[in-house]
Design a protein around this nucleic acid. Structure first.
Lengths: 108, 108
DNA sequence: CGGAATCCCTTCCGATACTG
DNA sequence: CAGTATCGGAAGGGATTCCG
C-alpha cells in the first residue's frame, strides 16, 4: 500500500512536532534568533524545563542551532537551521487553521 | 502583542490536531468516506478505543461527519465535512515534511 | 459491525529547588 | 543568564472484555 507510506510520514512528523510547544517555539524562531529567556517571555506559560527539553529535541533533529557566547554571564542564542526553515509552511498553515478555529468560536 | 495572538492559534490548532492519530485519520478521510473497520485496516496500529475517541473529537469539532445506516448489521460511515476540507493543506504539508524526515534518515 | 467499559502503563508536562 | 535534578500529577494511549 502506498498510502501507508505517506500515512506513516504524517505520524513521524507528528512524533517530532506534536508536542504542545515545539511548533509554537518554532514560530518565534522563524522571526529570527532568540535567547533563552527571550523565548520564555514570548511563551509565558512554558516552564523552563519544557523549554529546555523541546529546544533540545529540535536541536537533535537538526532544525535548531544552539550557539553559546562565552561572555559573563553566558549568552545562548537559538536559531533555526536551514533545514528548520522547512517548519515555516507548517507553522503558517497551522496558524491559519488555529485562527479560523478561534473565529468560529467567537462567531458562535 | 500581536505575535501572541497568532502564537496562541498554533497552540489551539495543536490541541485539537496534536494527537498521534487525528491527522493521520484525516489523511485517509480526505480520499473519501470510510467505514469504521476500513479505517482500522488503513491504520493497523490504532486501537479501537483511540479510533473511536479521535473520530469523536473530530466530529465534535465539526470536521468529520458520522453517518449511521440502520441496516443489519449496522453500517457507519465517516466523512469530512466542508470545514474538514481545511485539513487538506495541513496534512499535505506534514506529509511532505515527514517524507523529508525519513529520507534524511535513510540517506544518513 | 461498530462500538462502550474497564484497567493499566507510559509519556507529557508543571512546580520547585539548586547550580556554574 | 541559562540551565539541571527530582518529584508528582495529568493526559495519552494500549489490551482486554462485553454488548446491541
Amino acid at each position: 500500500m502506498k498510502e501507508n507510506v505517506s500515512g506513516c510520514s504524517v505520524e513521524e512528523a507528528m512524533r517530532l512536532l506534536g508536542g504542545r510547544w515545539r511548533l509554537l517555539l518554532a514560530s518565534f524562531l522563524l522571526d529570527g534568533p532568540k535567547r533563552f529567556n527571550e523565548l520564555r517571555r514570548h511563551v509565558p506559560n512554558i516552564s523552563q524545563r519544557m523549554l529546555t527539553l523541546d529546544l533540545r529535541a529540535l536541536e537533535e533533529a537538526g532544525l535548531v542551532k544552539r550557539t553559546v557566547y562565552p561572555e559573563v554571564p553566558v549568552k545562548v542564542e537559538y536559531s533555526l537551521t536551514v533545514e528548520g526553515e522547512r517548519l515555516r509552511k507548517i507553522v503558517s498553515v497551522l496558524q491559519e487553521f488555529g485562527l479560523w478555529l478561534k473565529d468560529r468560536k467567537t462567531a458562535t
